[in-house]
Amino acid sequence: MTDEEHFEMLLARYRGAPQMPDFRAVRQERREVRRWPYAVAAAIVIVIAIGVLATRPRTLRDGEIVQTTRFSTRIKAPSIGTIDLAPHTTVQLVQSSHDRYLLDLREGSIHATTTSPPGVFMVNTPKASAIDLGCEYTLSVQPSGAGMLHVTAGWVDLRYGFIQSLVPANASATIDAEGNLSAPVFDDAPFRPDSSLDTILRTARTKDAFTLLNLLPRAANADQRVRIFDRLNALVPAPANITREAVRDRWSMGTADAWWPPVLKASGVSAIKKKKRYSPLSSADGP
């Protein structure tokens, strides 16, 4: 007999012979079905599907209205560039032709990156119009007409009637519910577009001479014009043909034209490269 056989015989006394339980008297527990992971997965799929459909670039026909809800969407306009609509934005394509792509922005926000010649892409808001001069910008408006334009690259010509605000890159201008346009204010300026005149004059830097020159035609009276002149003159001396008296007593839209080149230089702003499509409203556009 081998050791193995010996041990097997010896230990056989411990061999188990437990009585089989009566399994019929035992209830099986039901498997807990976790439904929430499936519900979450389904919800994610639905949200993604809605998002994909909602954000799919669209080509608009004249007169067509687009209203975004919870998702952004992109308008395809190959001759213009890309126009992204933020959530909760309503626009209507008013006109699309080879020399004009006109959108009516009623509410919400758009971000445009254009490749079209200056003056072709134009956006009307309830109180103002933004004319693209070859650039990238974001324009937001409320149903009241109040809004803001922020330019990332190039220039945008913002207008309301005969009021104009030429906004360069890295600057913003506001539109109030009455249609009044603020002067352009650089992103890093020590004041905001809606700051008081006192604050602006007190804190303006040399770079902000651009803002001050835009404030001159917005001054309410001769006294304000003189105060603006004095501060601007301190930052960027006026050309010889622009005098304090002329600004105070004989102000017209062309009075300060000669001041634009040195102000642009001091503000570090490159002048608009005019192309054949763009036709400024008046000589007051300076740059």
Partner: peptide
């Protein structure tokens, strides 16, 4: 050894109860 037979039964009863898992 004296406990094993009882525990064998307990193990199989537990297994039967949890078999759906």
């Amino acid at each position: 050894a004296s406990d094993v037979d009882d525990v064998v039964q307990e193990v199989f009863i537990t297994a039967y109860q949890k078999l759906q898992m």
